[in-house]
């Protein structure tokens, strides 16, 4: 175990990052890219021809907290009044990792990895935890009974549970007490042809696009420079990939 999480209050989420040995500096050339999702026909269901993904270049000098802030603003998070800091909902969190032997440290944003084979969906007893046809993993709160099995199952600890009555939610992100929630890749924005909120403020460090389309920016970048999945050994094939970890 060569890495350690430095943030104390995230202790319950100390987990997989032993596997992200912050070893070599695999600096991928930074290509500034904004890709706009093509606005689809909103009267038709989403299709599995598309698979949305994100490529996060951790070598870029970006303040990831900006992404967290954008996320909080977009989804109206942080309105819990009674919950402890480690209970409050996080869609994205910034994880700092450090290689003790070399002293090399880095930070990376971690959110729902939008697995192709999501364990949270496997274990959900009610079908609330679901994967949309276009690869976005989200919670159907109409069905969620708050058992939190998905939180146990997720190897990325991406999910949060709402412990208290919420008020003043965003119209686009209904959320409330007794339900589990997580990053939904800004499904409301993506459907309207916009980029996810974190991507928009990332100064090009996060590239969003269709992994199934070889011509998309994200696919080209992945083909040229490769990407790494966190805990690739679990063979969940996450849609969120990283460079520089």
């Amino acid at each position: 175990m060569t890495s350690k999480i430095e943030k104390e209050d995230l202790s319950r989420r100390n987990f997989v990052f032993g596997s992200i040995a912050a070893a070599g500096l695999t600096v991928a050339p930074g290509v500034m890219l904004y890709q706009t999702a093509n606005a689809r026909d909103l009267s038709k269901p989403v299709s599995s021809k598309v698979r949305w993904g994100m490529l996060i270049d951790t070598t870029k000098d970006v303040d990831w907290n900006k992404c967290v802030e954008a996320c909080v603003k977009e989804h109206g998070l942080g309105n819990e009044e009674h919950s402890r800091a480690d209970q409050r909902t996080q869609y994205i969190r910034v994880v700092d990792v450090k290689n003790k032997t070399t002293g090399y440290s880095m930070s990376l944003p971690v959110m729902c990895q939008h697995c192709e084979k999501p364990p949270c969906v496997d274990v959900c007893p009610t079908g609330a935890s679901m994967k949309r046809e276009d690869g976005i993993v989200l919670v159907d709160r109409h069905r969620c009974i708050g058992c939190r099995y998905c939180m146990m199952a997720c190897p990325y600890k991406a999910r949060s549970f709402v412990h208290e009555t919420l008020t003043d939610q965003k119209t686009t992100t209904p959320r409330g007490k007794g339900c589990v929630e997580s990053c939904n890749m800004c499904v409301n924005r993506v459907d309207n042809g916009q980029l996810p909120a974190c991507v928009e403020v990332s100064e090009g460090a996060i590239v969003f696009g269709d992994l199934n389309d070889p011509e998309s920016d994200i696919s080209r970048l992945l083909a040229k420079h490769g990407g790494k999945q966190i805990r690739a050994d679990l063979k969940l094939n996450p849609g969120v990939q990283y460079q520089g970890i």
């Binding site: 909103l42 269901p45 109409h142």
Partner: peptide, 27 residues
């Protein structure tokens, strides 16, 4: 319409207007 929208991603009628069962529109 909540099933259509959330689970299948249908967010509008063919004419581009809101779905009839859109709670947002009701409000």
């Amino acid at each position: 319409d909540r099933i259509l929208t959330l689970r299948e991603g249908v967010r509008a009628k063919a004419d581009g207007n809101n779905l009839d069962g859109s709670l947002k529109q009701c409000i």
